[in-house]
Structure formats: structure tokens, C-alpha cells
Design a binder for these strands. Sequence first.
DNA 1: CGGTTGAGTAAAGCACCTTGACTTGCCTCT
DNA 2: AGAGGCAAGTCAAGGTGCTTTACTCAACCG
Lengths: 168, 168
Amino acid sequence: MGPVESDDPLYGTELTFLLGLAFQLLLGEFNDRVAEAGYPDLRPVHGLAFQALGPAGATSSELAARLGVTKQAAGQIVDDLERRGYVRREAHPAGGRRKLVVLTEAAQAHLAVAGRLLHGLEAELATRLGAGGEAETGAAELGRLRTDLVRVIRALAGTELPPLRPVW
Amino acid sequence: MGPVESDDPLYGTELTFLLGLAFQLLLGEFNDRVAEAGYPDLRPVHGLAFQALGPAGATSSELAARLGVTKQAAGQIVDDLERRGYVRREAHPAGGRRKLVVLTEAAQAHLAVAGRLLHGLEAELATRLGAGGEAETGAAELGRLRTDLVRVIRALAGTELPPLRPVW
DNA sequence: CGGTTGAGTAAAGCACCTTGACTTGCCTCT
DNA sequence: AGAGGCAAGTCAAGGTGCTTTACTCAACCG
């Protein structure tokens, strides 16, 4: 039988530290799998950009606001993704200097793959958690964790959520 | 009565995203308070360095290993902290080229303040969570969250924990 | 029409880290 | 003792990903 978590030295460490470590480990594992799945040079911010653009596309200034970066930084990200065939700049229906940045099929394929990988990873995690021999299933534990995290986020941020940014 | 979290649109988002957002919000709040408490230019990595050095001090190569960076980067951090009076380089008892990096009283005072701020923040969070009107107290919820996080971390990393690094 | 607004871009700077190359003190092996 | 190796520390250069500053260009509005 493994260590009981209340005996684990980790249990006494700061909540912030635990959150950071869990996030880092999960994101790192996800990123490794994304790389293995044929996207070695797509960083998490690229996936976030794909999500922020969405099926309808957006201008790069809108993208900047959604990612929480300057419009210059967003422009560089779009340049990079365009060069690699993940987005196109099209004429914007509203005219002006505006350009509509839209996802190519390559980006949509990546989104689908990334979604599968995320869910697969979470399912694996549930299995590993459930294998401890406790009465509770891993899936139930992850559901509870998710609920608690949502409550913490709402307590800290209210209804308006900030963009997820690289942490320090 | 506030929104029930299973109705919250956040509930459907990825676990990784929730972890990242919770971490970012909590760390950001902590960092703001550290700045207000008189340490406007101490970043989280500096606090981690203080913890990694500990009461006995360490060489900068040891510090590098504990922070998960190159020894050059650790050397720069030590240079910076030394210039600002938070650490001193002393002769190492084991001799050689080694130098023992030790905390000054300023750093120890900072560690004490940071510890108070972290615990205060967590206590506030517990109060806010408990104010929802549910049967469960905020402190109980945070204890459960902590337990779940420890289990997730152990499932992903095993017994050897990697250093906490900036995330992407 | 002149002025303002806002999207996009270009250039430079900066924070923070890496890789590469080197010096220096000690230890080991013959 | 002397040669070689090893590990700590340090210089120097490079690179990434962002910001700040400054500009151009298109539409709108009085």
C-alpha cells in the first residue's frame, strides 16, 4: 500500500505551490504528447490562439485582447502561424485596415488532436488515481477537483476571467 | 444565491486550464501583496531561491539544480540578490572553488513576511469559499483540494518531484 | 475637408534564460 | 611528484518572446 497523502510531506506545502506543480506536470505531459503526435513546435500559446480565433476567426487585435498580450505580440504569433500554414489573413467584411485571421484545416485538425489528447490524458489520470485501492473512483475525484477549482477561480476572479498567461 | 458550479461554463473546460488559471490567480494575488509589503522587485523565483538556499545555505550549483536552471542562470540570480543585500557569498567549509551562498537577515525577514502573506491569503480564500452558504466550510474544502492535488502530483511525478518552473 | 480614431506594422529594447568556452582549485592514479 | 581529470564558478555571446515607442493607412464624424 502506498503512502497516505496526509503523511506525504507534500501535504504540508503551500496550496499555491501544489497548484503550480500540478499544472506544470499536466501541461508538460500534454505538451510532450502534442509533440509526439506530430506537432513538435506548437507551444501551448498556439493552441490557445486557435481557440481564441474560433471557427469565425478574429482580427489580430481581438486575438491580442483574448490572449492578454500587445497587438504587436499577437501580430508576431499570427505571422508565425501563417508562415507555417495554420492560419490565413483574409479581407475583413467590415473593411478598413482590418484583416480577418482564420484557421486553416491544419489548425482545425490540430485542435481536434489536442482535444483528444487532453481528454485521454485526463482519463489516464483518473485510472491511475482510482488504482490506489480506495473506495472512490478516480473519475469522481477528478470531478470533485474540477468543482473545487472552479470555486477557487470564481472566488479569486469573479465573473470576468483574465486570459491564461505564462506564469512568472 | 450564486451560480451552482455545475452550471458554470467553467465547469466544462479542461482540467489543465482550470489548474493554470487557479495557479495564475493565486500567484498573482500573492505577488501583488508581496509588492505592497515592501518587496516590489522580488519575483516568485527569488522566494523559491531563498527556500532552496535554506538556513544552511548552498553553493550556486546546488541552487541551480534545485531551481532547475543552469548554473550560469543561478549565478546571475545570486549576483542580483547579492547586489540587493539578500544573500552573501562566503568561503565554503569544504574549500575548493566552492562558495557558500547564505541568506542575510533581509532575506530571512522576507521569508517570514511571504509565509504570513501566503497563509493569510489561503485563510481569506477559505472564508470566501465558506461564505457561499453551503454546509461545508471553506477550510474543509481547501483541505480536500490540497489532498486531491497531492494525489494528482504523485500520480504524475511519482516520488521525485521536479523543480517548479515558469510555465511555458 | 481637417481631425480623430483604431487596426496594423516596423524597429528597437529588455528580461531572462541558454550554449559554449574558459579558469581554477582539488583529487586520483600511476 | 606529476599528469590527467573533474567539478565550481565565471565570461561572453546568442536567442526567444515579449514590450515600448513610433509610424502608416483607412474609415468615420463634425
